[in-house]
Write a protein that binds this DNA or RNA. Structure first.
Lengths: 293, 293
DNA sequence: TAAAAATACTCCATAGGTATTTTAT
DNA sequence: ATAAAATACCTATGGAGTATTTTTA
């Protein structure tokens, strides 16, 4: 059985005439008779009662198959449409990774724009570290990732979606509180709270270099993996921290943010994807982000 | 698009290999590539990511279409099966007419046997007079009818499914009550309650003839259309009635049934259907009734 | 180099056309 | 006599085969 058998049968069942149906189908009558006969042979039952002169009529089986055939063709049309929409990237799900520290930067803005432009798309956001995101991309559990450089694995494509400077986070009880921009030299003797080096070795090392350039030796305490936790520790008076500027949005009672006058590393945020053909949805998101960023 | 496109795509999507799928489908690999390419062209989207050497993989649209295609083929199989069952008369609905007076004769037994043998079939029973049944048969609102002869229209096929004699229904307060078989002569001067002639002219006239053969003149009162009503009138003492023997099953307080010694017309019950091809279900019922009756 | 898919061609099975017959009104 | 479906036969589109090329690991 083939789809045209369904189409032909529906035409005959609706016209109740082989001649009329053939006309509607833009074919001649004899092949239509043949095709219907094939269909009946395959189903093992008559679908139509016909005899020259008398009016053609559906059998009970024919009435059933008419319903079924219509439902099947409708289903086919819907399937095609759904597939096309998925192909055009208008619907579907896309998995996007991001680090917890990005929750206050540009990433939410970028994603918000994409959501507005593509309401049929479900964004599945997964919070993970840069290293975890790289693994997940390769394992195909992520379509896209928002990471910090440097990336360990090759074979990724990236797009820079934002850079931000570092600011100093200090408790409001601190002597430097209330003053305007701070020089690194003023931090002599302070405990600097920071993230474990393995989370972002590149940024970690560049930060350290910036401090030593300023002729400063500091006690570095790798206390917390989450920037939010570091801010909480600052608040508790355990030290000061140098964090991405966007963290200033996390206004927290008892913590102040000060810009730094000395050269400090810039944190880049990268949109990262596998170097093979990205899904239409991933392409759309890349495109949307490129336009916004 | 044709069904084989669905089958081919499912094979490739499941094997994730054109070569493997071609093997499973018992065709060679190149035509399979061609067919999938056709399908992708028609859908306007890639369904599979492939490149010699690399492993073949589904695109997002491909994953969607795989689901859809499987559902469509499943639906097709179910549709075929349902149509076949209908064609074999294993399921469906059949409309059967019968007169109200048949409710106590052989008809319920015949239908009960059919029901047991064909549990998938819904019997739609419609109570109507013989004349109404004839019209309904021609109008195709009935598939089969249980009628009393004679039929007015030609073009019907019939099968006799039972004959029954007539018995006398009398009030138990009547002088004849309690005695054994009755002679028609004993009814001299009685009021005979009967159905309107138009309901069954043949039976009516034969009954009248039987009475006059016995040299009897009677007051005929066409009081009621339903035999049950006539029995009620007998009970009320408005007269006596000659009714089909099966009515004796309607045991009613205050009414007695006596057999009649003189020759009386025999009531035939006919199973009637149109002279064109009856539906498989109708055929099954005719067959069932023929075997039982 | 070896594999897997794509391309190029060839062939034939069958969908569809034309002519005609059959059948019922 | 007419009209509709079935039958017979022919044509040609396109599905499937074989041979070969392309591509990437």
């Amino acid at each position: 059985m083939e789809i045209h058998h369904l189409r032909y049968f529906i035409a005959v069942a609706e016209e109740l005439s082989f001649r009329g149906a053939a006309e509607r189908l833009h074919i001649s009558q004899p092949p239509l008779s043949v095709q219907i006969a094939q269909l009946e042979r395959e189903l093992g039952t008559r679908l139509l009662e016909r005899s020259a002169g008398k009016t053609t009529r559906l059998t009970a089986a024919g009435a059933v198959f008419l319903d079924e055939a219509r439902a099947l063709l409708d289903g086919l049309d819907r399937s095609i449409e759904r597939t096309r929409r998925t192909g055009r990237g208008e619907v579907g799900t896309i998995s996007v990774g991001l680090t917890s520290s990005m929750a206050y930067g540009v990433v939410p803005l970028l994603l918000r724009d994409f959501r507005r432009a593509h309401p049929g798309v479900t964004l599945q956001l997964l919070e993970m570290t840069t290293a975890q995101q790289e693994k997940a991309l390769l394992a195909r559990t992520l379509d896209l990732a928002f990471c910090y450089p440097p990336l360990e694995n090759p074979g990724f494509k990236t797009r820079n979606v934002g850079e931000e400077g570092m600011v100093l986070a200090i408790p409001d009880s601190h002597p430097l509180a209330g003053t305007r921009p701070v020089r690194v030299g003023e931090l002599q003797g302070e405990t600097i709270l920071t993230f474990p080096r393995h989370l972002s070795p590149g940024l970690f090392d560049r930060m350290l270099a910036a401090f030593s350039m300023a002729g400063l030796t500091l006690r570095i305490a790798e206390e917390a993996t989450q920037l939010q936790t570091i801010i909480a520790l600052v608040c508790a008076g355990l030290g000061v921290a140098v964090v991405p500027a966007s963290m200033a949005k996390l206004a927290r009672e008892g913590v102040e943010y000060r810009s730094i006058l000395d050269p400090m590393p810039v944190v880049e945020t990268l949109l990262v994807w596998r170097d093979d053909a990205p899904s239409p949805l991933a392409q759309k998101l890349i495109q949307s982000v490129s336009k916004t960023a």
